[in-house]
């Protein structure tokens, strides 16, 4: 399920394109065709990579969080070795990129940004949202994190420190949010449903489920 609740079919990338708005659309296709003709890559490899990214979403992160909330041993593993924790849940985060999970506590709230480009734990969470890549977020999240979070509707109390993580190098960060009150007795799947993508970046926190 995609994040706004319905599936988007994406066309075959080698089908004739429709509504392609950028002059770079033709250029990257030209590059891909020529590389394939010269045997530098194959269309199948490109297709497989597209499938790989399409299969990734923040829901992987939500599963990690829900398991950490219900299993202290798993939480310890997630904080110590995020790749190993992913592997336990069948999430393929192998590869050269490293991951670190930072834990929200009553004393500290974490916020992730990449000021130099848009580094994001893509192998786990999929592609980053547009706002994460925007100059406004990249420039402001480090200097006025509380104001930025307020724009997302998140007010962090003054007695909670805000820790901003600028993923400038070889490590990608994700946030382990706090389990909200009123969730005792919920199943792991129900808990995972409380964790939105923004919770894993730190611009939101999981909310107590509404009473029915």
């Amino acid at each position: 399920m995609s994040e706004n609740g319905h599936e988007h079919e994406h066309g075959h990338p080698h089908a004739e394109p429709k509504h392609e708005t950028s002059p770079w659309a033709a250029r990257i296709r030209a590059v891909e065709e020529l590389l394939a003709e010269k045997g530098i890559l194959t269309h199948e490899e490109v297709e497989a990579q597209i499938e790989y990214m399409e299969a990734r979403s923040y829901e992987n992160g939500a599963r990690l969080v829900a398991r950490a909330w219900t299993d202290p041993g798993f939480k310890e593993l997630l904080l110590r070795d995020t790749k190993a924790a992913c592997s336990q849940l069948g999430i393929d985060a192998s590869g050269t990129v490293e991951f670190v999970t930072v834990e929200n506590t009553p004393a500290t709230h974490n916020l992730i940004v990449c000021t130099l480009c848009s580094c994001y734990p893509r192998a786990i969470l999929g592609r980053p949202p547009d706002w994460y890549k925007s100059p406004a977020y990249r420039s402001r999240a480090v200097v006025e994190p509380r104001a930025v979070m307020r724009e997302f509707g998140l007010e962090i109390p003054e007695d909670t420190s805000v820790s901003v993580h600028d993923s400038s190098a070889d490590v990608r960060y994700l946030v382990l949010p706090m389990r909200p009150p009123g969730t005792e007795g919920m199943t792991e799947d129900e808990l995972a449903d409380l964790v939105t993508r923004d919770c894993l970046v730190g611009t939101a926190v999981p909310r107590e489920p509404a009473r029915v």
Partner: peptide, 9 residues
């Protein structure tokens, strides 16, 4: 758009 997925891949 498809070309963006292509650039990514």
């Amino acid at each position: 758009e498809d070309w963006e997925r292509l650039a990514d891949a």
